[in-house]
Amino acid sequence: MEKKDLKVLVVGEFEVINAAIQIAVDLYGVQCEVVSIEDAEEIIFVGDYTHIIVALERDDDREKGIIFHNLLKIRLPAWRKSAKLFKAGISNVTADDYIRVPSNVMDDIATKIILA
């Protein structure tokens, strides 16, 4: 698949992580959109995303993200969607479907830019 055909959707509740992933994806010149968990399902159902990244964060949001990620494992095939599904977060996980966002970068973005 060519780069121009790639279309990434970032789903998450924590703006810092969402923004960091979107910026990182944008750097590669790949189409990328961000949506909250609440609105994600309809957008995925009507969309043609090649990759979906569910951003996990701390506490309640993490739980919400994991539940949503598990649901997508059932719903994507049910909708005949072949998008590759990933998780993203700041934990030190090395699984193939986990995108690790370095936490020091996250803290700097949060404290120096977003919360400043």
Partner: peptide, 14 residues
């Protein structure tokens, strides 16, 4: 789910 989609609805699989 295929039948539901064929009728124009969005299936929410559980």
């Amino acid at each position: 789910c295929d039948l539901v989609m064929a009728k124009g609805f969005m299936p929410l699989a559980c």
